[in-house]
Write a protein that binds this DNA or RNA. Structure first.
Lengths: 329, 329
DNA sequence: CGTTGTTTAGTAAACGTTTGCGTAACGTAG
DNA sequence: CTACGTTACGCAAACGTTTACTAAACAACG
């Protein structure tokens, strides 16, 4: 390992000067800079992150925590995070928190001892406890979830998005629209989306029909069964995740009915999954990659480290593909 | 931040002693240990990773590099890596290398300055150049790819797996079997798999029919078109990724033919995608999560850090779902 | 009761940086 | 020519650990 001292020796300057040119500070002549740079190149010098971090109490790591790392939603957000992080010269550290933030505190502790520059929490709320373990020196924010104005976050307006989705279906002529929700007790977004659905249905004087799965593929068929046993005449199903929507599409066809002719299906999130099914899913798109990018940008821009940036709402967008159609009579 | 000195003061011992108990070394009495532990608990002390790493020249980070982080295959391997890493007290650092390892060297440099304990490369080979930038202190290995016996890796036997898949289709009665490959020029596994397919076909005196996509969903429909224009009477398609297989299933149905009645479809990898389509894909399963876990275990067990563990081949498994059926006449 | 061995503990020197402080050198103004 | 401001740079002290080395304390043994 070549150190700053080696470079200093070769360049005929002090380590302090090398440090200054490496960090682009002031206080050296152009020719000194050149000598130092040559020495750096010659020795293939690379500053030691650990020593630097120890001294400056900051490293270029950004933590990303997701309930489960292999799911499509989290993956796409992480992808955006990675891109933005690399762009700004940061590294990303990955952690799985488990469905109910079980491991979150432990990861956060680790991240703190690494003196991370910030942490991004996917699909989970920042609890006061989390804030506490992080201390005041590392900002944290949530992505793809929000809870009023209480903590720093980046998300779409889930309530309005679900409202819009429901309105879209109504606009298509559907009257008997079932909602296939995720688990509303544990996942906040589901509560908001359900509220949006209910509002749209109520405003249109339609009867809500609602069942919950757990957002994953396998939970959808049974939930769809329950939905249909509540109202066998449903002409549209709004599923609150693309995986469930995909399952609905497949299940409906398996039952011998057609999508979208007999039943329209609307998904949520616009993950890759929405294209993996035929017909491809109409869905409410969240700008997932963009959210990841924005999250790191806002984190890095945060000045008052103690409580991060204010909540921000991103636009959602309805994408119409083949799984929805107008219903006439 | 509370330091080891604070703990020492409170416990009435020297920092050295605190360090010893924290690291579970020898050289202190049971009562000293207790006093130290109390002090630690009282002050909520947590050793500074950076200082420790600086001194010991090792940190508990494991790097994971994938061509693209949001794809299903990489996600599932990463999930296994994360699990095993957490189990052993390691953290994982994530990086995207781009399709042809473009950013790999840069990430590896970073990982080295972090004094990572090891790095795992997904779907890419370890090049001598990579080894060089890592130096001799950080082991590296590949997962889900292999190239003879040349570098440390963990993978299934792709050639045999493709051979088995093809044999399976032949065993079902199919004679006109098309192969939908990924890009064989850039991705090594594709070469091996193609070889396996060709061997099975040749042995059975059947005519190979082969086209390439890029492993992603969108590349499949056109490639399927080309396949069919080579032989319109194909009764089975073996796609070398689940995404392409899913696309084939959907495309075939869109063309008004049935899966598996008219055309059987066999996928590869057994990612989540294989279940997102209807009928669900028969596919060759790679033990992805397990591969991730094993990768970290072998990395951590590596003694001779300079060249990592020897290659190892994991068993693949054919999973039969609804997308394949026997063909009679 | 000396000698020796073992256990427990402390001292201090690193690890590779950054940065406050000090100073030499130089130019400019009076 | 003196005084002073500015710039370029070096010295050395941190940052929070780990770990060789040393020493005290104690037990065991002849």
């Amino acid at each position: 390992m070549t150190t700053i001292r080696d470079v200093a020796r070769v360049a005929g300057v002090s380590p302090a000067t090398v440090s200054r040119v490496v960090n682009g500070l002031v206080g050296y002549s152009t020719e000194t800079q050149q000598r130092v740079e040559e020495a750096i190149a010659e020795l293939n010098y690379e500053p030691d992150t650990l020593a630097r971090g120890l001294k400056t109490k900051q490293t270029s790591v950004i933590g990303v925590l997701a309930p489960v790392v292999s799911d499509a939603l989290a993956s796409e957000i992480m992808s955006g995070v990675e891109a933005a992080a690399r762009l700004h010269g940061y590294s990303v550290m990955l952690g799985r928190t488990g469905p109910s933030s079980t491991y979150a505190a432990s990861y956060l502790r680790t991240l703190r001892t690494y003196r991370a520059a910030g942490v991004i929490l996917i699909s989970a709320a920042v609890t006061p406890e989390m804030r506490r373990v992080l201390g005041s020196s590392v900002p944290i924010m949530s992505v793809a979830i929000r809870d009023g104005q209480r903590f720093p976050s980046l998300a779409i307006d889930d309530e309005v998005a679900a409202y819009d989705g429901t309105r879209f279906l109504i606009g298509l002529g559907h009257r008997r629209i079932g909602l296939l929700a995720g688990d509303p007790t544990s996942v906040l977004v589901n509560k908001l989306r359900i509220r949006g659905y209910l509002r749209a249905m109520t405003e249109a004087k339609l009867t809500p029909v609602l069942e919950s799965g757990n957002s994953l593929y396998d939970s959808a068929p049974p939930a769809l069964g329950r939905l249909l046993s509540q109202d066998a005449g449903l002409t549209a199903v709004f599923a609150l995740s693309d995986e469930m929507a995909a399952a609905v599409v497949n299940e409906v066809q398996r039952m011998g009915r057609r999508v979208p002719d007999d039943i329209s299906v609307l998904g949520f999130d616009n993950t890759r999954t929405s294209q993996h099914v035929h017909p491809a899913l109409s869905t409410i798109a969240q700008p997932l990659e963009r959210m990841g990018e924005l999250a790191v940008e806002r984190l890095l821009a945060t000045q008052d480290l103690s409580d991060g940036p204010a909540p921000r709402i991103l636009p959602h967008r309805l994408i119409e593909r083949g799984s929805t159609a107008t219903f006439t009579r």
